[in-house]
Design a protein around this nucleic acid. Structure first.
Lengths: 248, 248
DNA sequence: CGAGCCCTTGAAACTCGTCAATGATCGTGG
DNA sequence: CCACGATCATTGACGAGTTTCAAGGGCTCG
């Protein structure tokens, strides 16, 4: 379990207890992977939903374009993240997706996924994982809707740090984030100019520095309270009921 | 199938073909229902997630409160709508929920749900239905993030009309909506005052009238184009692939 | 008939967007 | 190795959309 699949397995294992056998099956499923270069489009809206994307390393995001060219980023996927398996039950995907930096991408076929989901714990882990993703989307709605620019950025930084920390992708209080200020703006519904000003404000207050694709958090507690970040929606550190609900 | 469960069954039947037997099973599951009066709290954030709520008649919404009292409404549930069955796989619900007008509410236990999901088509329908709900949340993120007040209200009205029409809850080009302007504001991230001004603008342009808990759409096409509403995210009118994916 | 909730309206303030220009950085090719 | 172009960060001035505060009016329900 030292290969590229390890972060994925690690993430799923946080959602349900996986046997060694199940971990091996997951590892086997990622055999066919490919390296994607920066800004490559993985999925376009309307593509047939016949395969499931897993980010083994790197960064990607899902987004939607409005007719006038405006863009809303819907989710970030870091190493170990995957798309919602239930998406395969629709004829077409309803978002676009592209990678940020060069990444290793595994693509699971419907058959492979069906094979994986014969293992009840794998199925359970994926369902819980998808629930967490949905909770993040809801939190983003709260974020964009009801927080100031300052809180929005702070909240997003806290969320990313917490998510990345859980799979060992942080160093000290810093993490890699190959994002432009314009992309941050399209995530948080702010103009790039205002993102810039707010980042400088965060820097001035010695809360966060975002430079050279590196986010450094200087005072997590202060940032957390300034942004009103409450990590409970991420459902980490929970021992969920081990109900067998294979059919969910 | 003339009882209170009919709208629910009708909605699920749009997501997958249900046999008469399966429809009967769904109807039986809603036997224990109760009548809720206006503004009653159905679920509070942090409650144990051990039962699944189905709105048989009436209106309800899910919301989150911020520490300072601000509120973001996350979703509306109309007659025939239900919560995401996967929610039961978490220990606690992560949103609050209350009814708007007096409603008939069925509460399914984990056991009942497990019994229902032994029917593959029921399971498939619920999964597809939940996907549609998730798509709506994503669309709201786009709405709040990238559209003006005018477009936001117009878009929400179009969405509600389309959803309600699909289960026969509209009359002509009108539908019931027992919402205050403040609640509309908490949905769309606008102040109640600005909702009021924008509603008057919509009325002035003879697009929509919202008075006495009734929304009347005077020109759907004009409203749709003014709001940039594209119903494809609702995944109606699709013949999805009838893959058997019981484990999803 | 009064209380409370909701809608309506006005004025002032503020957050944030747009436009525009200047630097900084980086990869590429000459 | 440097010049070039492109992308991104930064800064200022101005304006638009929206919020907040405040007050009045209408409706409904007890």
């Amino acid at each position: 379990m030292t290969g590229l699949a390890s972060r994925w397995i690690q993430r799923l294992a946080r959602c349900a207890t996986l046997s060694l056998e199940e971990q091996r099956v997951l590892e086997d499923a990622t055999e066919s992977l490919r390296r994607c270069s920066s800004t490559e489009n993985l999925v376009k809206i309307g593509d047939p939903a016949d395969r499931l994307i897993v980010i083994l390393s790197g960064h990607a995001y899902q987004y939607r374009l409005l007719p006038d060219g405006r863009r809303q980023i819907l989710a970030y996927l870091f190493a170990g993240d995957m798309c919602d398996p239930r998406q395969l039950m629709l004829p077409q995907v309803d978002y676009s997706m592209c990678v940020l930096a060069s990444s290793d991408i595994a693509t699971l076929s419907v058959n492979t996924l069906q094979r994986l989901e014969r293992h009840p714990n794998v199925s359970l882990a994926m369902a819980r994982y998808a629930l967490m993703q949905a909770a993040i989307t809801r939190e983003w709605l709260v974020n964009v809707g009801h927080r100031t620019a300052f809180e929005r950025i702070g909240h997003l930084v806290c969320e990313m740090f917490t998510r990345l920390e859980s799979v060992g992708l942080t160093h000290e209080h810093a993490f890699e984030l190959p994002l432009t200020q314009a992309e941050l703006g399209d995530t948080l519904a702010l103009s790039a100019v205002h993102v810039n000003r707010t980042l400088m404000e965060l820097r001035r207050l010695k809360l966060v520095t975002f430079q050279n694709r590196q986010v450094v958090i200087h005072d997590f507690n202060a940032l957390q309270s300034a942004a009103g970040f409450d990590p409970s929606y991420l459902h980490f550190n929970e021992r969920p009921p081990e109900r067998a609900m294979s059919a969910l």
